[in-house]
Computed example of a mutant assay.
Amino acid sequence: MTRREAIVPANRHALYEMHRYSAAIRSGDFLFVSGQVGSRPDGSPEPDFEQQVRTAFDNLVNVLEAAGCTLEDVVDVTTFHTDPAAQIETVMAVREKAIGGPPYPNWTAVGVNWLAGFDFEIKVIARIPEGA
Rank of each mutant, 00 (worst) to 15 (best):
residue 131 G to H: 06
residue 112 V to I: 11
residue 8 V to H: 04
residue 93 A to L: 04
residue 98 A to W: 10
residue 21 Y to F: 15
residue 44 S to Y: 01
residue 54 R to H: 07
residue 86 A to W: 01
residue 99 I to T: 07
residue 104 Y to D: 06
residue 70 T to V: 08
residue 91 V to C: 08
residue 5 E to F: 09
residue 42 D to E: 12
residue 6 A to D: 10
residue 12 R to I: 10
residue 96 E to Q: 11
residue 22 S to M: 02
residue 56 A to P: 09
residue 32 F to M: 09
residue 112 V to P: 01
residue 32 F to K: 03
residue 95 R to V: 00
residue 87 Q to P: 11
residue 68 G to F: 08
residue 86 A to Q: 13
residue 87 Q to Y: 03
residue 108 T to G: 01
residue 81 H to G: 06
residue 113 N to D: 15
residue 74 V to G: 13
residue 77 V to C: 12
residue 47 P to S: 11
residue 76 D to M: 10
residue 107 W to C: 12
residue 129 P to K: 03
residue 68 G to L: 04
residue 65 E to T: 11
residue 98 A to R: 14
residue 28 G to A: 05
residue 46 E to Q: 14
residue 114 W to I: 00
residue 19 H to S: 09
residue 72 E to F: 06
residue 70 T to I: 12
residue 100 G to K: 09
residue 98 A to C: 12
residue 100 G to I: 12
residue 12 R to N: 05
residue 102 P to H: 10
residue 62 N to K: 13
residue 82 T to G: 05
residue 37 V to K: 08
residue 111 G to M: 04
residue 101 G to C: 02
residue 69 C to Y: 07
residue 109 A to P: 02
residue 73 D to I: 05
residue 21 Y to V: 05
residue 75 V to Q: 11
residue 94 V to A: 07
residue 18 M to R: 14
residue 66 A to Y: 08
residue 9 P to M: 03
residue 42 D to I: 06
residue 36 Q to K: 10
residue 129 P to G: 05
residue 12 R to V: 10
residue 46 E to G: 00
residue 97 K to S: 12
residue 50 E to K: 12
residue 129 P to Y: 02
residue 33 V to A: 01
residue 124 V to C: 12
residue 25 I to L: 15
residue 52 Q to M: 14
residue 81 H to I: 06
residue 35 G to D: 07
residue 51 Q to H: 09
residue 71 L to A: 08
residue 90 T to F: 00
residue 115 L to G: 02
residue 69 C to L: 11
residue 47 P to M: 06
residue 65 E to R: 12
residue 71 L to M: 14
residue 104 Y to R: 14
residue 105 P to E: 03
residue 72 E to D: 15
residue 56 A to L: 05
residue 56 A to N: 09
residue 101 G to W: 02
residue 38 G to N: 01
residue 56 A to G: 13
residue 115 L to Q: 04
residue 106 N to V: 08
residue 123 K to R: 14
residue 83 D to Q: 12
residue 6 A to V: 15
residue 17 E to A: 15
